[in-house]
Lab assay of single mutants.
Amino acid sequence: WKITIYDQENFQGKRMEFTSSCPNVSERSFDNVRSLKVESGAWIGYEHTSFCGQQFILERGEYPRWDAWSGSNAYHIERLMSFRPICSA
């Protein structure tokens, strides 16, 4: 599993790669995730830290803005603060 997060939209700004769970992006000096690329595996992104709040399934691909992973939710969530890989047995 591999995911790359960015602190600006369209894959700009600070970037960081992960191959395992991140319970709080702010502990990695990110205020928020504004864009991301899922390089391999599937991940679950969460609205809040500690894997809480609205969940987003993140499959392999590029997500240049928050609405790319938020989709058409009843209330739009511009925040992604934690994530972890989906492990299959």
Rank of each mutant, 00 (worst) to 15 (best):
S88I: 07
S20G: 12
G71H: 11
R34F: 03
Y46T: 01
G45L: 09
H48W: 05
R34W: 01
Y63G: 01
R34M: 06
Q54M: 14
W66V: 12
E27L: 06
Y46H: 02
E17H: 09
Y75Q: 11
V38N: 00
D7Q: 08
I57Q: 09
W43S: 01
K37W: 03
I86E: 10
R28E: 11
M16K: 10
P85M: 04
S26V: 12
S72P: 12
G13R: 00
G45E: 00
P23S: 10
M81Y: 04
C22K: 03
F30K: 01
F11T: 00
S82E: 03
R65I: 05
Q55K: 11
N24P: 00
R15V: 10
R79V: 09
I86V: 15
P23N: 07
F11G: 00
C52Q: 14
R65W: 03
S35E: 00
W69V: 12
T19R: 07
R65Y: 07
I44K: 04
C22Y: 03
I3S: 00
F51H: 04
F30C: 04
E9A: 09
I86Y: 15
H76S: 12
L58R: 00
R65D: 10
N24M: 03
T4Q: 07
E17C: 08
E27Q: 14
C87Y: 13
F83S: 02
R28K: 09
Y46M: 00
S50A: 11
W66K: 15
P85V: 06
D7H: 04
W1I: 12
Y75S: 15
E47M: 03
A89L: 07
D31W: 05
Y46I: 00
R15P: 07
W66A: 14
S40W: 06
T49I: 12
Y75H: 11
P64I: 00
N10I: 03
Q54V: 12
F83G: 02
D67I: 06
S21N: 06
Q12V: 09
G41A: 02
V25L: 08
F83K: 01
K14L: 07
D7I: 02
A42N: 13
S29H: 11
D7K: 03
P85L: 03
P85H: 04
R65P: 00
S82N: 01
F56K: 05
I5G: 01
T4V: 04
V25F: 04
N24V: 02
F18L: 14
Y63I: 09
A74E: 14
G45N: 00
M16C: 11
E78I: 13
S40Y: 06
N73I: 06
F83L: 04
S82I: 01
E47S: 13
E17F: 07
S35K: 03
C22S: 01
R84H: 12
L58N: 04
D31S: 10
Q55P: 11
W43G: 03
S50T: 06
H48K: 15
S50P: 03
W66G: 11
T4D: 07
S29V: 06
P23M: 09
I57L: 13
C52P: 02
H76I: 09
H76D: 13
Q54R: 15
N10C: 06
G41M: 02
